[in-house]
Simulated scan of single mutants.
Amino acid sequence: MSPDPCFCELAPLHALDILDERERLLVEHELAHFPELAAELAAYQRAVAVLPYGAPAVAVSADLKTRLFERLDLEKPKTPAVCVPAVPYFALRAAELPWEPFIVPGTAIARLRVDEARRELVGVFRAEAGVKYPDHLHAGFEEIFMLEGDLEIDGEIYGPGDYVRSQPSSMHGPSTRGGCMFLIRTSLDDTFIETVT
C-alpha cells in the first residue's frame, strides 16, 4: 500500500477540484489539524480563480453557427418566435419567502433565482445572533444589500441600507452580533476555506 500523499501535493489539486473522495478527506483532515495550512490552500485557490482570465479574448465569427451547420450537413435552425410570458414579472410576498436551512448552523436562505448557466444565485440570507460564517473564497462578484441587523466584515460593521460588493478571488468570514438579514447575489462556486462546523 502506497503512503498517503502530502498536503503540498494535494493542495493544488484540491484547488482545481480534481481530487477523489479519499484525497479530499485527507486535505480536510490536514486543515482541521493544522489550520495554518488554510493560507497555503487559499493561495492555490486564488491562482486557480484567475486562470480563465489569463487566456486572450477571441472574437466569435458572426457566421460561425451557419458554417458549423453546413459542415455537419445539418439544416440551419429556424429563428424561434419570441414568446412573451402571460405575466411579464415574478413577485413574491415577504411572508411567502421559501426559507430553508443553510449549511452553516444558525443561518437560512430563501433562493429567489438560481442561474446555472451563469453560476449565480440571488436570494435573501438571514443569520441568528452570534453566527460566524466560515472564511470563503469568492469565485465571482458577491453583492450584499443589508435589510436588517448588523454584519461585520473585516472589522467594518454594516447595517440596514448598506451595500457591500466583494471582488472575485477575495475572501472573508463575516459575522453578526445581533443577527441580520440581507439580499445577496453571489456565485454558486464559492469555496469554503474553513471547515463548516
Rank of each mutant, 00 (worst) to 15 (best):
F102L: 01
A39Q: 12
T79N: 14
E143L: 15
E21S: 06
A42C: 13
K132P: 01
E75R: 15
M171P: 03
V58M: 03
L147K: 00
P88D: 06
R119I: 02
A110Q: 00
R71T: 12
G178Q: 15
S166F: 13
P12T: 02
K132W: 02
P88Y: 09
F145V: 12
G123T: 07
R24G: 08
L188M: 13
W99M: 00
P105L: 02
A62D: 08
R118H: 14
P98Y: 02
L72H: 13
L74Q: 15
R46W: 01
G179N: 06
E116R: 15
A91I: 06
R165Y: 04
P98M: 00
F69Q: 11
E40S: 12
R113D: 04
H136C: 05
M1H: 09
A42S: 12
V114S: 07
V131L: 02
R46H: 05
L97F: 07
A139K: 07
E142A: 10
A32G: 12
S170Q: 10
G54L: 13
A86P: 11
P5Y: 04
L13W: 09
L72I: 07
E120T: 15
E75Y: 06
V58E: 04
V58H: 06
I184P: 07
E128H: 03
M181I: 00
L26F: 04
F182V: 09
T191D: 00
G173N: 05
Q45M: 15
P134T: 03
F141I: 10
L121M: 14
R177I: 13
E142T: 15
R165T: 12
S170A: 12
M1L: 08
K132F: 03
A32R: 13
V27W: 05
L10N: 07
R126V: 00
S166A: 15
G179H: 07
I193D: 07
I193H: 06
F102G: 06
L151N: 04
P88G: 09
D17R: 13
P3V: 07
E116H: 15
E120M: 14
A81C: 09
H138P: 12
A42E: 11
Y158K: 03
I103W: 01
G155I: 11
R113V: 14
I193A: 06
D154C: 05
L64Q: 07
P56G: 01
I157S: 10
P77M: 14
H172N: 10
